[in-house]
Design a protein around this nucleic acid. Structure first.
Length: 1018
RNA sequence: GGGUGCGUAGCUCAGUUGGUAGAGCACAGUGUUCACAUCGCUGGGGUCAUAGGUUCGAAUCCUGUCGCACCCACCA
């Protein structure tokens, strides 16, 4: 055997062997009918590469999987990747830009999607290979991709079913719009960040120059301000949205504005001749104590305003295009403003008609929203309608610096920390945008998902994450699932022209049919075009037959909805157009636990492995993923009795790996530790063990590279223990029976092994990964290597007759058990040793997990070996304290012992002599003169060091020890005299204290006697 | 504003029904050929953030305070 384990050379070889031999296949090594255990991997993005979070997440999963597999479960770790809509589209677009300068928008959609697939085929398995380097024992033959054929079928079915149940619907809503990717995103994809910003205060003049008495009062009702005003003052951080104001709102209880509620005021932007008038309304939303108490209502560009507008019937005017630039379409501003004014005056317009109105004055059209903001502010200010404030800087759109002139004059803008929404991928400011989108009725789906956790069908570990889960689900909003992207599952909805029903008069019908613009559309939702077409034919047949029309529905999808009316033949030629949008990536991820097992087909795997067992994940995707899997799982999956079934019984939530400041590791911050670098340097086992031992930490993991090195050394330690065993002829004996060992050292290590096995099992069952790692570390290094191998050396190395063979077999067994127990955490080094130590029937990965009865622990052996260890420890300490040269052999004489203890000493004398460097190990009636004394329970251990030791120093040492024991004794006596303690404390605690007192008293007596003898010498 | 978690040895952190504070690393001293210097042996180092309370007994339970972090919502 080599001196150390060469991880870099061995890992790929071992992994290849595992795969080649099918060790990771579903059910590998399990007997027919074995209980199943299944984990679905949180699918990494195809664009991804392994980071520390993945390393932790997958190490923990692999531990659970390997542990169950070895215990004989029918085990499946289902792997796969996520198509990651925005992220992947971004990567490919960037690549296109770098290579050919072709923009996505210059390409046909199919061509672009083909490019993405090409890219996926090339680099999509990067992450898989990295997971293999970590040692992940996924069943790679079953690898799935959210865009593959089967999963796409699952997505279509779920969409279509939910649509027909009314749980998916389309509507015009205010959504979070990402101007960089030009798509809607969900609430969860928005990150709120505090940034330096400004707030402006503007005057909205009252219509017709009207005035009112504006009165401010303090808390006691004293008038603090009274003036005549011809305006209402509003505050805004977004002046550019003033162009789309539909009203000004005040609180119904606000007395200051009561005189003008219901009147009109003027938006002070745009050409004066065509300024719009908007009503002053009341709503509960404005806070009278904030700003002026009056809020401009811009329904199309603010979520709160949208709610007010809905309540108050205020129109919402969209001001921006998909890039969040000011709209540059429609008629000249004067005409558009007139249309809006007509609405205020009572004209009824359809939603589509209102949406078509462009209220951006001609001079602002096409400007970026930020440019427009600056221009609006300058224009209003020039007009004298900006309200003076005392703080801030009049410069616009530029960040205020600390060194700005403090004596700058009172300004027209207020510096303010504002919270701005940013796209989590694009990092640009999100714009609330009024658009048509698809939504999932999440509130309905959330109910069973809530209940399943409330009643314990699914539990979180640690438990407190349930609160987070509940809190979100209880306040859940509709989930916006449509994305204006090209990469993803295209929405299975086809549109055709809507046909008025039979109550419509023929002339009206003809008029509608001949006017393609503004016509309503009819949606047909089906898993395929053919089925949608069949639905459409049914619809048109029913509606058109009344009129005697013939019709055809085109055999192909078209980019545009078509409806050619050939009147003379009473013939309609209809073509259906597919909804161009794709679904949120998380929509397909939400189906992961059953889609990967073959659903909607009723596969064998689905039956065997659903529901799955544990979901291992970071808390950052509880909302994105866990909650949604619960919703879809409970909606679509049923157990044998037809009861709705959760996707997993346990959600294990682990910490996130963060940087020193508590931020997530990210490339842009440059604070990333690459797990692959660590694997290269220290081996996968060391990285895995490190992460495992940190798994119990709180929410932040700050990775200490020194620990990785330390655990690499741990692997080496184990390696060398095995090497020692090999050098000393310790071969695993297939007939070895741990219960039958005779020698006390062997009984002891057998018991210790059984104990650590039990600890590991209990720890893993409770997801206390760090406890498992810690117990194994302490056992292998601190018990097996430090003590058992040392104490048993004489028995394996010299001829001791039967004890010799027994000890060799025990050593081999004890090491084998360690390999098995450690394998889930450190698979590579253990597998390598397993193979090197002996020829085996199976790989360690499929070796049976030990089931060691508690009866293997022998209290007598424990007590005796504990005594030996304490004795050696004590002597070693004294030697160092007394500066005895490390190589010097000294004598030891035990006094005050009972006969059994003397026997015990003699039994272990050779080992004690070797490990404590003693020339002699004797028992006597009296301590030799000039001894250093150590108290060990009832007896005294005397080291005659006359001549070597300084009597004064030894007296001081003993004095200190006696005093220390005295203090302890005092405390214990006090406690045992306390009647309340005796009355209230449990019996075993009291007994323990008595015991401790007795021991301490005995030790103190021994040391005191030694001290007395020393003073006699002096 | 609502919620969650954290503050224990120089550093990174364990400490599961309350019963005399632990690990790794770092540090200091030392080295006995015979598994291992990726090692052995020994040692120093903590009033468990803070103030109270409950208890015979609190790092552990309760309350307040201070500090740090994260999540959700958000006042224009």
């Amino acid at each position: 055997m080599d001196k150390t384990f060469d991880a870099s050379a061995a890992e790929s070889r071992i992994y290849a062997a595992w795969e080649a031999e099918g060790c990771f296949s579903a059910g590998a090594g399990a007997e027919e009918g074995a209980e199943s255990f299944c984990i679905v991997i949180p699918p990494p993005n195809v664009t991804g590469s392994l980071h520390m979070g993945h390393a932790l997440n997958n190490t923990l999963q692999d531990i659970l999987i390997r542990w169950h597999r070895m215990r004989g479960f029918d085990t499946l770790w289902q792997p796969g990747q996520d198509h990651a809509g925005i992220a992947t589209q971004m990567v490919v677009e960037r690549q296109l830009a770098e290579s050919g300068n072709i923009r996505r928008t210059d390409m046909a959609r199919e061509d672009f999607v083909a490019k993405v697939w090409e890219w996926k085929e090339q680099s999509g398995d990067t992450i898989i290979n990295q997971l293999k380097r970590l040692g992940a024992s996924c069943d790679w033959a079953r690898n799935r991709f959210t865009m593959d054929e089967g999963l796409s079928r699952a997505v279509l079915k779920v969409f279509v079913d939910l649509y027909h149940e009314g749980l998916i619907y389309r509507g015009k809503r205010l959504v979070n719009w990402d101007p960089r990717f030009e798509t809607a995103i969900s609430d969860l994809e928005v990150e709120s960040t505090e940034v330096d910003g400004y707030m402006w205060h503007f005057k909205y003049p009252l219509a017709g120059g009207e005035t009112y008495e504006y009165v401010e009062k303090d808390e006691e009702g004293q008038v603090t301000l009274r003036e005549t005003r011809d305006y209402i003052s509003i505050a805004t951080t977004r002046p550019e949205t003033m162009l789309g104001d539909g009203a000004v709102a005040v609180h119904p209880s606000d007395a200051r504005y009561a005189p003008i509620v219901g009147k009109l005021c003027e938006i002070p932007v745009g050409p004066k001749a065509h300024r719009r008038l908007i009503p002053i309304i009341t709503d509960e939303y404005p806070d009278p104590d904030f700003g002026s108490g009056a809020v401009k209502i811009t329904g199309a560009h603010d979520f709160n305003d949208y709610a007010v507008a809905k309540r108050g019937g205020i129109p919402c005017y969209r001001l921006m295009d998909t890039k969040a630039a000011m709209r540059d379409d429609g008629a000249p501003y004067a005409e558009e403003a007139a249309k809006a004014q007509a609405i205020i005056e009572g004209a009824a317009l359809s939603e589509a008609e209102i949406d078509a109105i462009n209220l951006v004055p001609d001079e602002y059209r096409g400007l970026d929203r930020m440019e427009c903001r600056e221009k609006v502010v300058l224009d209003i200010t020039a007009e004298g309608l900006a309200v003076m404030t005392t703080a801030g800087d009049p410069r616009l759109g530029r960040k205020l610096k600390e060194d700005d002139d403090p004596d700058a004059p009172a300004s027209l803008v207020e510096k303010k920390i504002i919270v701005q929404p940013f796209g989590d991928r694009s990092k640009v400011v999100i714009e609330p945008m009024l658009t048509d989108q698809w939504f999932v009725d999440a509130a309905t789906l959330a109910k069973p998902a809530l209940k399943a956790v409330q009643d314990g069908t699914t539990t979180f570990a640690p438990l407190n994450w349930e609160k987070t889960y509940f809190n979100w689900l209880e306040n859940i909003e509709p989930w916006c699932i449509s994305r204006q992207l090209w990469w993803g599952h295209q929405i299975p909805v086809w549109y055709g022209p809507a046909i008025p029903d039979k109550s419509t008069r023929l002339d009206a019908f003809m008029a509608i049919m001949e006017m393609p613009e503004g016509r309503e559309v009819q949606a047909f939702c089906a898993p395929s075009f053919a089925e949608a077409r069949a639905q459409a034919e049914e619809y048109y047949r029913e509606r058109l037959s009344i009129w005697g029309f013939q019709f055809t529905v085109g055999a192909q999808e078209t980019p545009e909805i078509g409806c050619d009316l050939i009147a003379e033949h009473s013939q309609l030629n209809i073509s259906l157009a597919r909804d161009p949008d794709v679904l949120d990536t998380w929509f397909s991820s939400a189906l992961w636990p059953f889609s990967t097992l073959g659903w909607p087909d009723e596969t064998e795997e689905l039956k065997r492995y659903y529901k799955t067992d544990v979901l291992v994940t970071g808390f950052d995707i509880i909302f994105f993923w866990v909650a949604r899997m619960m919703m879809t799982g409970l909606h679509f999956m049923k157990d044998a009795e037809g009861k709705r079934e959760v996707p997993f019984h346990t959600v294990y939530v682990h910490a996130l790996v963060r940087d020193a400041k508590g931020k997530k590791m990210s490339k842009s911050l440059g604070n990333v530790i690459d797990p692959l670098d660590l694997i290269d340097k220290y081996g996968a086992d060391a990285v895995r063990f490190t992460l495992t031992s940190m798994a119990a930490m709180g929410r932040d993991i700050k990775l200490d590279i020194n620990r990785v090195q330390g655990y690499r050394n741990f692997g080496t330690k184990l390696w060398n223990a095995a090497r020692f065993a090999e050098l000393n002829g310790c071969k695993p004996d297939p007939d070895f029976d741990p219960a039958a060992v005779k020698h006390i050292v062997n009984k002891w290590i057998v018991g210790e092994t059984a104990r650590v096995a039990k600890t590991v099992d209990a720890a893993l069952a409770a997801y206390r990964f760090n406890d498992a790692a810690g117990a194994l570390y302490a056992h292998i290094w601190g018990v097996l290597c430090d003590w058992y191998l040392e104490l048993s050396k004489p028995l394996v190395q010299r001829d001791h007759g039967p004890a010799n063979a027994e000890t060799q077999a025990t050593t081999a067994w004890a090491i084998d058990q360690c390999l098995v127990l450690l394998h889930p955490i450190m698979p590579f080094v253990t597998e390598e040793l397993w193979g090197q130590i002996a020829k085996r029937e199976t790989r360690l990965a499929l070796a049976p997990w030990p089931d060691l009865p508690e009866s293997l622990a022998d209290p007598t052996a424990d007590e005796e070996m504990g005594w030996v260890v304490a004795l050696i420890d004590g002597i070693r300490s004294i030697r160092t304290e007394m500066n005895v040269p490390a190589g010097a052999q000294i004598e030891m004489v035990m006094t005050g012992h009972t006969p059994p203890v003397a026997m015990r000493l003699l039994r272990h004398a050779p080992q004690i002599q070797r490990l404590a460097r003693l020339s002699e190990c004797a028992v006597a009636e009296h301590a030799p003169a000039g001894s250093v004394t150590l108290a060990l329970g009832d007896c005294a251990i005397n080291l005659p060091l006359a001549g070597v030791i300084d009597v004064g120093i030894e007296a001081a040492r003993l004095g200190k020890a006696v005093a220390k024991l005295g203090k302890e004794i005092g405390g214990l006596e006090g406690k045992l005299r306390n009647e309340k303690f005796l009355a209230n404390a449990p019996e075993e605690v009291v007994a323990e204290q008595r015991d401790r007192l007795q021991t301490a008293a005995a030790e103190q007596a021994k040391l005191q006697a030694a001290l007395d003898r020393l003073s006699e010498i002096r």
